[in-house]
Amino acid sequence: MEVKVGDIVSRKSYKGDLLFRVIDLKVEHGNQKVAILYGEDVRLMADAPYQDLLLVNEDEHEERQRVENEILEHSFRLFRQDYQLIRNKNEYNATGGYKNTQDFFQMPGRVLHIDGDPVYLKKCLALYEKLGVPVYGVHSNEKEMPEKVGELIDRFRPDILVITGHDAYSKSKGKMSELKAYRHSMHFAQTVRQARKKVPHLDQLVIFAGACQSHFESLIRAGANFASSPSRVNIHALDPVYIVAKISFTPFVERVDVWDILRNTLTGEKGLGGIETKGLLRTGMPYRSNYDQT
């Protein structure tokens, strides 16, 4: 069966380990047909010979999605447990150990999420909404992010900035330590540096940057609080959401332990890392659900 742009495929040479969306089909040197692929659940960009593609039928795709949804639901439950503990602690502090009944309100950190993949961005925005995180989402090609980030920060004034999309390490382009061997790590690092020109302080603007197999060290050196990928492994499309949601709902008087923030992600410490960072949640009172009309 012929493979077309938009189809879901796997790769025979990798024993069908991951699902990909076909983004483009082109002819390269020697008239070899090559497919450009985006990971369906991981932030990986790859290319593959046309003959290496295996079209995934609807039943197989649905079964894989069912398993994927179970994993996501488990991670979501763990996050909700953490959030409930934070809320209970805040309620105890705000009410003087439950000595008064004054209602309070909470202001979580605002997120600006810039994503190179519109499909992933849509998935992330849906999860932010489910978690209750205030967010602005912007789709941008990874190469254009450094030019756009300054204006976007001015427009949305976020507390947290997410810079992500697709990336990949290519052994044929250089050593793992060389930035030139990565598809978009250089653009992510440039975007982080431009953001830090706007907001230098690590606790005034918390930054997550990177995608699958990204050059972790260069992103941290550029000024990111959290980044991927320390062991150059693939990261899940939704991992940035879980990281920034944890920061968004942690009180600003507390610091988020790096291990504590990574343990409920779908990838873990091999794919994600960072530095100690202050929370961004602020609690206030009194709370008014409505106001008298005069």
Rank of each mutant, 00 (worst) to 15 (best):
R66V: 13
D154Q: 15
K130N: 14
Y242Q: 03
R43Y: 01
N225F: 06
E40H: 09
D257I: 09
V258S: 04
R196S: 10
S140I: 03
R183A: 14
D159T: 14
V42G: 06
Q102Y: 03
G268W: 02
H29E: 01
Y83P: 00
E40V: 10
R157V: 13
W259C: 12
T164F: 06
N90W: 03
E58C: 15
I247Y: 02
V256R: 00
S10T: 08
K270P: 01
D47E: 11
I163H: 01
V34M: 00
Q65M: 13
R66D: 12
L37Q: 05
A222S: 15
H215S: 07
T250V: 12
E73Y: 08
E70Y: 04
N57V: 14
R282I: 11
C212G: 04
G273I: 03
Y92P: 01
T265E: 02
K26Y: 09
V206M: 14
V138N: 03
G116L: 01
E63P: 03
P118F: 06
A209I: 06
D24H: 11
T250M: 11
L18Y: 09
A224Y: 00
S229F: 05
T277Y: 05
G223I: 05
V34A: 00
P49S: 06
V241R: 04
Q194L: 09
M1G: 15
D167E: 09
M145D: 03
K15H: 12
S229A: 10
